[in-house]
């Protein structure tokens, strides 16, 4: 039990992610989380605005259940599968870099100033959350997939398109971290 309560090492986590991919293939589906964003748009009536959203969303109901499960998994893990003194043990170098930007060393899973309730009292913070989410949603659909669809499933199938998408993910991520973070934090 103690091993489950500790953070899971990369070799356990990586193998389990491959297992989830296999599980979905065995169930006759494919691993692609961001498809849910399109489905949610259709359910909210987006099909009245663009043909992209005209499809039978019920065919994706399995993926929505997978999404609900992911949220449930986050709830279970944080409440029942961690120790009370748990902090994310990132490297000293990252703690130093983040402190330059004004972030304290981790005391929670994510910085509360950015993602906790208190984050919603600052309009600058809300702007960051909205911009980040917007680019994730827009980019995932433009690129035809996110980390699960391209970096895991697509590269496992040796798809050149997925490799290019992942190169794009890193160009964007590195630019945000090294060029834009120093300007906004």
């Amino acid at each position: 039990m103690d091993l489950i309560l500790q953070p899971w090492p990369w070799y356990v986590s990586g193998a389990l992610i491959a297992f989830v991919m296999w599980l979905l293939l065995y169930f006759g589906k494919s691993f692609g989380f961001s498809n849910n964003l399109r489905t949610l748009c259709t359910m909210c009536g987006a099909d009245k605005f663009a043909p992209f959203f005209k499809f039978n969303w019920k065919e994706q109901s399995w993926n929505l259940l997978f999404l609900v499960g992911a949220g449930l998994g986050g709830y279970i893990a944080t409440n029942y599968l961690t120790t009370p003194d748990y902090v994310v043990a990132i490297s000293e170098a990252t703690i130093d870099d983040l402190s330059v930007l004004g972030f304290a060393a981790p005391t929670a899973y994510a910085p509360a100033s950015q993602f906790g309730m208190e984050a919603l009292s600052s309009w600058q913070n809300i702007l960051i959350l909205v911009t980040g989410g917007f680019m994730v949603g827009f980019g995932a659909r433009y690129a035809g997939g996110c980390t699960s669809g391209h970096a895991i499933s697509g590269i496992s199938d040796l798809q050149p398109a997925s490799l290019l998408a992942v190169v794009g993910f890193f160009i964007g991520g590195l630019a945000m971290t090294h060029l834009i973070f120093p300007l906004i934090y």
Partner: peptide, 12 residues
């Protein structure tokens, strides 16, 4: 698409 996604991934 990938670059836009990556910018958002790092920001959020």
């Amino acid at each position: 698409g990938g670059i836009i996604f990556g910018l958002g991934w790092a920001l959020s």
